[in-house]
């Protein structure tokens, strides 16, 4: 395969990894943020955690794989982004650490204060992660200061611009909604009713923020940063989000979940389309941007990695999909049936 084809394939593969991560871990983050607000009793909180208990770790691996694949396929992208977003990523890591450890440790002691502390750490960790990932992607869409040596020249406050913050908050809202829809599918009884009430309110917040973000992106011209016009994809993303509102009101959780999931996927597709072939846009000078051509690995490495991906991605997708099928049943808050 030609070098250029390989570079495009790996751009698409990394986009797919991020899409998978936002789609899957998106509801995990949402569930995490909802946990202390939705669960009043200990059994309820445990049931909420168990809805993602067997899958959150596997979902998080999508992020690790996206990181690893970026390192392998586009070392300069990995190097510039990770060193450039240093403190933001540090906070993201702290968020992921306190969230991950809390899933495992919160029920290993009966002391209510212990459990409550870990529940809040799950919520705060999920919030931090969602906020920072959203802000990071908004900044990637907007462009960040990069000099002629591919070095990021800003700092944490460079990322905390209005557009970045709006991107972060919108991501938080969408993930909250996504999590609420997921819980609507996994819980039963009173808890299921309660989560539907949450979803209605969250839908309003998420939609408002999402539309503002869209308008901001359009007016600022960020959609025009790459070589491909995303066209109707962002419009479709807005439409599915509106349709999700209808299904939430109808209490048709499955469809509501699918619609918000589609919104997340289409948003990511929009992002990667409008940035292509840039991977990190330089706001200092457009010509200093990192692209799939100047940031990539050698042809040999991309070929080897393609073969590896061709073999293992289908296997991973098969067994991860099978896990969801295995644990498809709704979770009751009855103590006897709960796995602690």
């Amino acid at each position: 395969m030609s070098y250029e084809t390989l570079q495009i394939i790996w751009f698409i593969l990394i986009a797919i990894l991020w899409i998978g991560f936002f789609f899957l871990e998106g509801f995990d983050f949402g569930v995490g943020m909802l946990l202390p607000f939705l669960g009043k009793k200990d059994e309820e909180r445990r049931a909420i955690i168990n809805s993602i208990g067997s899958v959150w770790d596997g979902n998080e691996v999508w992020l690790l794989t996206a990181g690893g694949a970026t390192f392998a396929a586009f070392p300069h992208w990995y190097a510039t982004m990770f060193s450039g977003f240093y403190l933001a990523l540090f906070l993201l890591l702290v968020g992921l650490i306190i969230r991950g450890i809390s899933f495992e440790y919160r029920s290993k002691d009966a002391n209510p204060a212990w459990r409550n502390r870990f529940d809040w750490m799950i919520a705060i960790g999920s919030f931090l992660a969602a906020l920072l990932l959203g802000a990071a992607f908004a900044n990637l869409a907007r462009g960040v200061p990069i000099n002629e040596n591919m070095m990021f020249t800003g700092n944490l406050f460079t990322l905390l611009n209005p557009y970045g913050l709006l991107g972060g908050l919108t991501t938080v809202a969408i993930f909250l909604l996504h999590g609420a829809n997921f819980l609507g599918l996994k819980l039963e009884g009173e808890l299921r009713e309660r989560v539907n009430g949450f979803a209605k309110k969250l839908w309003i917040a998420a939609t408002v923020l999402y539309v503002i973000l869209g308008i901001f992106t359009y007016i600022a011209g960020f959609w025009n940063n790459g070589h491909i016009n995303p066209g109707v994809i962002p419009i479709a993303a807005v439409i599915v989000l509106l349709v999700a509102g209808y299904f939430i009101n109808q209490k048709r959780e499955g469809w509501a979940f699918i619609m918000v999931a589609l919104n997340i996927v289409l948003t990511q597709v929009t992002f990667f389309t409008m940035t292509f072939p840039n991977v990190m846009l330089s706001s200092t000078n457009y010509d200093w941007s990192l692209t799939i051509y100047n940031a990539s690995s050698s042809q040999y490495t991309l070929t080897v990695m393609s073969i590896v991906a061709l073999i293992f991605v289908p296997i991973v997708l098969a067994y991860q999909g099978w896990t969801y099928y295995m644990f498809r049943k709704r979770i009751s808050t009855e103590k006897k049936s709960l796995v602690y």
Partner: peptide, 20 residues
């Protein structure tokens, strides 16, 4: 980067999914 990516794809998914 290659062994790191393979590690995630081959090992981390396996470890975390099956432990779950």
């Amino acid at each position: 980067g290659a062994p790191l990516a393979v590690e995630a794809l081959l090992a981390f998914f396996m470890e975390s999914t099956f432990l779950g």
